[in-house]
């Protein structure tokens, strides 16, 4: 069997996690999965929990608040510098992303950030962050 019917079946069965992720993202959510067995937050999307091996994962919508775990600024020739960051979301998962609306060099480890879905870009919608002003994580 092939075609759209097959895809719908896979999605219903939770077996096409990347497809499900991109659809939820296109609707403006910051999606992640949560393990029904051990409650681990799971990202990137999978069919199996990497913490305990269970196959029952539930889709969740992140509140979109997180902390910059690390950051690197890239300096492409002839273009503006931009930051690549790793963000620890408050729900307990980490993702690579970028921070917009702030000079790249001013994005610091420990900064609090808020997610939004950027619908543009050559790869389609993706999660990006902006700095949460006045809030800073004091963890070491």
């Amino acid at each position: 069997m092939s075609g759209p019917g097959k895809v719908a079946d896979l999605r219903r069965a939770g077996l096409a996690p990347h497809l499900e992720y991109t659809e939820r993202l296109a609707e403006g959510a910051v999606p992640f999965q949560s393990c029904e067995e051990c409650r681990a937050a799971v990202f990137p999307p999978r069919v199996l929990c990497p913490a305990c091996g269970a196959m029952e994962l539930t889709w969740e919508r992140s509140a979109g608040l997180g902390t910059v775990y690390s950051t690197s600024v890239l300096f492409p020739r002839g273009r503006d510098p931009y930051p690549v960051v790793l963000v620890d979301l408050d729900e307990g998962f980490r993702m690579m992303s970028t921070v917009t609306g702030t000079p790249a060099e001013e994005v610091a480890i420990g900064a609090r950030v808020r997610a939004h879905v950027d619908p543009a870009g050559p790869d389609g919608p993706h999660v990006a962050f902006t700095l949460e002003t006045g809030e800073r994580d004091e963890r070491p």
Binding site: F43, S72, L74, Y82, V84, M96, S97, T98
Partner: peptide
């Protein structure tokens, strides 16, 4: 890839 959209220059980034 859940990283490529952010244009890291790999492996250096």
């Amino acid at each position: 890839s859940y990283e490529a959209a952010y244009r890291p220059r790999m492996p250096v980034t």
